[in-house]
Design a protein around this nucleic acid. Structure first.
Lengths: 343, 343
DNA sequence: CTTGGCACTCGATGGTGCCGAGTGCCAGAT
DNA sequence: ATCTGGCACTCGGCACCATCGAGTGCCAAG
């Protein structure tokens, strides 16, 4: 059963290549790993691995380099996520704890992640869709207009201004608004955004005919704000790390930078990972649907306050990456930022 | 008066160097510009220019390259901002016109600026400090807490939660809040943020002693929101352009990317340009206070809805940059985005 | 003050040869 | 059947070298 040994050799190749960034040859492998066999045997096994498309030789007389498929196998079967040390964990926690508001949490998290992985951190702002409603506020404005303010438990605020048929800045208008506000919040508060949108649909019918148009306008604006995800932002940190890793990219880091600027695309990438809770997703090289990222790997997971894994976060780096460590870092950071957000 | 001719030679050197990115020698200069003198004369003048610190030879037998001081002189006295063509102007206008909201305006503007200048665009979000208050809203929350919401005319919303001494969710609390809200808005609405902060200082004294602590807490939170500029964000676009211009940077683009990630620093750079309306500010090389940007130039100006030039916008690129064209582009984009925002 | 001429400098370019890591393959050992 | 040592071969990387040419500074003459 030399199958087993071949996989060990693959693992060794990946580890060495990640460590040295140079193609690894049979001899060098023997020096660093005490496999109980000779160089010739290793060479034979390497030939098989190459046949299977797991490794590849840049040119005739050079060592081997893992292919995307090789990394994939390594990640799936040959490595375990390497847990962080206690010291690292407390450092993460302390760094995140002194954040003063949501923006600061996101900013700090992204910087932290990039600095401990030495790669580009990508972090989605907590998304509306999975959050819940904290409060809805109605603000009458001059000129027969009404501002609808939606406050989400993630701390985000959305607002819409609607035109209404009458001026609400007077006494009577205030009472009407107060009534609407109360019922609105009774229906929507603490609901998930999607649920709130559904729950509000029947609200107009609970009011007297005279007020229905008004309520309908308010609910319409609110549903717009509830459903639309346009405030979904993504922040980057550590793009300078790409330069350091520049030699790992076949052509140049230009296309990578370009791809990273397409925030919409990044969002899709972050969102489209499978929903396995607490799992860290890895996209390796060509597995990435974006051409600019074909020479990169993306390690990502989800995070969010409480049980709702509201948004995605991860890193982008060269395929030649220390996957176990990176995966551990991403998972740990996601865990801690979730904990911070939960309060 | 050969002083004049020397400046023309400097101008020619800058233009050629910008165009070819290669040190320009006396002979090459004669081919591209019909100066009425011989190569030897040009050489003599170049020697003088070098003595004055305006140009510099990378090594003994190479052409000359402008120094920061040379560019400075060129920008100040030897060039005129090159107006854009009509076609370019309408293209800018059309591209910006189809933006759907504030975020979209900012996003499109930054991308546009980077794509027409082929450099990194830097754009500050409309700043709070110069905007004015549209409305202040008070929202009672369970647990003796009160949410203070500040709505700014730029469309931005700031919120603070304050602890208060009594529960305000009941009838009496609602009336008190209503009173505070009315006076608050009477004082602050339509004021510039700084003015509003000042105007509110005396508000607590206008209330009965029983309510003063409450009002003071509200005003405190509000002033915090008014004064603090922390929501000031900056967006970048076209960082990939740095790669293309990579050869212009002595070491690598790494430090530049790092500097660009320090949004706080960028904001300070954008804000600290002199307030000459409609002027385009240029910071060349070492003039930049940030070490990472010592090999770059920053061309920036201010923009904003109406007469208030609320925020800054500009580009960062190598010192070897086509200043007249870049300055024109920055100015034009600022003008058009201001126009869009004015509606 | 300008100009042509001249000797000199120095980076860039391209060719050459060597070195060594690494391979594939094969015959013999286990 | 599998592993091992040996051997011939490949090929990129590096150092060395010679050449080339754009460009300079300087000087003497116009």
């Amino acid at each position: 059963m030399s199958d087993e040994r071949r996989l060990q050799i693959l693992r060794a190749i990946v580890q060495d290549y990640v460590a040295t960034s140079e193609p690894v040859g049979s001899k060098a492998l023997l020096e660093r790993h005490r496999l109980g066999v000779s160089a010739a045997t290793v060479r034979n096994d390497m030939a098989v691995l190459e046949e299977q498309g797991l490794i590849h030789a840049p040119h005739t007389s050079a060592g081997r380099v893992p292919t995307d498929a090789g990394y994939r196998l390594f990640v799936d079967r040959l490595s375990a996520i390497k847990p962080l040390s206690r010291a690292e964990k407390t450092a993460i926690q302390q760094f995140l704890e002194c954040a003063v508001d949501l923006d600061d949490v996101v900013d700090r998290t992204a910087r932290l992640l990039s600095s401990i992985t030495h790669q580009v951190a990508v972090m989605q702002y907590p998304s509306l869709t999975r959050s819940s409603v904290r409060h809805v506020e109605l603000v009458p404005m001059p000129g027969q207009r009404l501002m609808v303010v939606l406050i989400v438990n993630s701390g985000r605020v959305e607002q819409r201004v609607v035109e209404v048929e009458r001026d609400l800045t007077d006494e009577a208008g205030g009472e009407t608004l107060s009534l609407i506000r109360t019922r609105l919040n009774a229906q929507a508060a603490d609901q998930r955004l999607v649920d709130a949108a559904a729950a509000l649909r029947s609200l107009p019918t609970q009011f007297e005919p005279a007020d229905r148009a008004l309520v309908r306008a308010v609910v319409g604006a609110l549903q717009d704000a509830l459903v639309e995800e346009r405030e979904e932002r993504v922040v980057l940190a550590g793009t300078a790390n790409l330069v350091r890793a520049g030699t790992d990219f076949p052509t140049s880091i230009g296309p990578v930078l370009e791809a990273l600027e397409e925030h919409v695309v990044l969002l899709r990438l972050l969102s489209s990972v499978e929903v396995d809770d607490a799992a860290v997703a890895v996209r390796i090289g060509q597995e990435n649907p974006v051409a600019g990222l074909h020479a990169t790997s993306m390690v990502s997971t989800r995070y969010g306050a409480g049980n709702d894994l509201v948004a995605g976060l991860g890193v982008v780096g060269p395929t030649r990456m220390d996957y176990p460590t990176t995966m551990a870092a991403v998972r740990a950071v996601a865990t801690y930022v979730s904990r911070i957000l939960a309060e």
